[in-house]
Design a protein around this nucleic acid. Structure first.
Lengths: 267, 267
DNA sequence: TAAATCAGGGTTGTATGATAACACGACAAG
DNA sequence: CTTGTCGTGTTATCATACAACCCTGATTTA
């Protein structure tokens, strides 16, 4: 048997600890928006570390948008909640309303992406989509290869929009959705589903190939509606079928750690 | 291969530039997942900065999950190309095509948000929008107060969608757009603009108040087209065409599904 | 009197050198 | 072949110094 040691016993860097500590101060309101942080030297002495470590911590918080600093003046807590990075809490996604929100957002992006792709796609884009579709045909429904090809199809649609951020955002959102679905583990598989899903993709590709933006939108919308059904969401208020909801044995990846950190922050 | 540090020395910190540069290497595939980065000393010399700056940049990339480092070994590109955070490169936004992409993405989100808001807005939402509009009326065009009220208006529209992530994403994207516009500083102001912009907002609010999703879409689309003109974008395809919004339901009140998922999460 | 200028201290940004902690391979001893 | 030791390279941290910049207040000037 193989030992399963904790992958990262790597003690957190001092800068991480300092950053967490400052972050906690902000979260708990002891440092209010607009407040000026102590000077780097002061922080260094109070934490018992070098000013260098403090600077790395501040650099991190600054990159997260929590604080901003100006040479010659000091560092301040950001007034508006204006993060420069966008994160999605894994745990929050376990709640149905959050999941629905994200799914809806994904739908908006995908549908518009399909329309843009229909207008701007190149032959290379079409080839990439076709290849991804072939990959889906070759793989069993729901397998890792199938999922990868599915993702690849949507990624190539996003790429065909010629909009860098569209691809970035879409991949980001889709990944979160996919993770959440995998964690729920209530996907039911059947050969019918494979056929139906493939058909949906083919219609999308056909519309994009024909440069028919409206048709591409519709096809993508249908596809997402179908996908929603397949994962147990329904567009109407009613839940379609009580999803078989058992065992989610190993889904939570970092939740324990996150919980621990949050507890620390709360204390 | 020193990059043009001298040119952009002012503004963002050196560590930001270094982080952007490394980040770009990863994004463009010159640094593949699993690859080891050059040593800090090597990076410092190639970039022409101190090792300290390189360390701050690496600390930032590490906090973003792009790379991982271990004492005594080196820094490596994270295997999974599945970032848990979404960031927008500051440098890239200075390029016109990137800016246009982001503006387009913002348009897609805003237009669809307007439609959703028209369907789901509450009286409180309407009040918030009206208040923001009043703030714009009271402030001189382009002033800080005006910009804040403008942002507040769009924020309250996003809030009215009842979609948490819609608000998060929209605020995130809008902030990046706004920053970029401020950095460019090529905004020309006039009283006419104030009147026109106010009128655009009023039409949006009226449509949302009337629960007319299509009109809200159109109004928002007009507004964004006008905004594009005002900041010097004249490509008409910078704003996506309005699209039929999927029949979407209120994201709340799915007790069965929610219960099921909660059960899963608990197990 | 009022405005402009300038000097000084305080703070962040960057550079530089040094030391400790750690990983890894080479190499000799058993 | 295994084990222990050592040397080298890298990251993590420390310490110090200087540059760039902001702010304030005194001083000078109109």
């Amino acid at each position: 048997m193989t030992l399963k040691l904790d992958k990262v016993n790597r003690g957190p860097h001092l800068s991480t600890l300092v950053a967490s500590s400052i972050s906690r101060e902000i979260a708990q309101g002891r440092l209010k928006p607009g407040d000026q942080l102590p000077t780097e030297q002061a922080l260094a002495t109070t934490f018992g570390v070098s000013r260098n470590v403090v600077r790395e911590a501040i650099a991190r918080l600054r990159s997260e948008g929590r604080i901003w600093s100006q040479q010659g003046r000091g560092a301040f807590v950001t007034d508006a909640n204006n993060p420069t990075v966008l994160t999605i809490d894994y745990e929050a996604l376990q709640r149905a309303d959050s999941f629905r929100s994200l799914f809806e957002l994904r739908g908006i992006l995908e549908v518009q992406a399909a329309a843009l792709a229909a207008r701007r796609r190149s032959d290379a884009d079409l080839a990439a989509m076709g290849e991804a579709l072939a990959g889906m045909r070759a793989a069993p429904y729901g397998s890792v290869a199938w999922l990868r090809s599915d993702l690849e199809f949507h990624r190539s649609v996003a790429a065909a929009t010629r909009n860098t951020y569209m691809g970035q955002f879409l991949v980001f959102v889709s990944e979160r959705v996919r993770e959440s679905i995998l964690a729920a583990g209530n996907q039911q598989k059947s050969d019918d589903m494979a056929r139906i899903t493939l058909g949906e993709h083919e219609r999308i590709l056909a519309a994009i190939r024909a440069s028919d933006a409206e048709a591409a939108q519709m096809a993508m919308r249908d596809h997402l509606a179908g996908a929603a059904l397949r994962v147990g969401l329904h567009e109407s208020d009613a839940v379609a079928e009580p999803a078989p909801v058992p065992e989610a044995a190993s889904p939570v990846r970092h939740s324990r750690l996150r919980k621990a950190i949050r507890k620390q922050a709360a204390g």
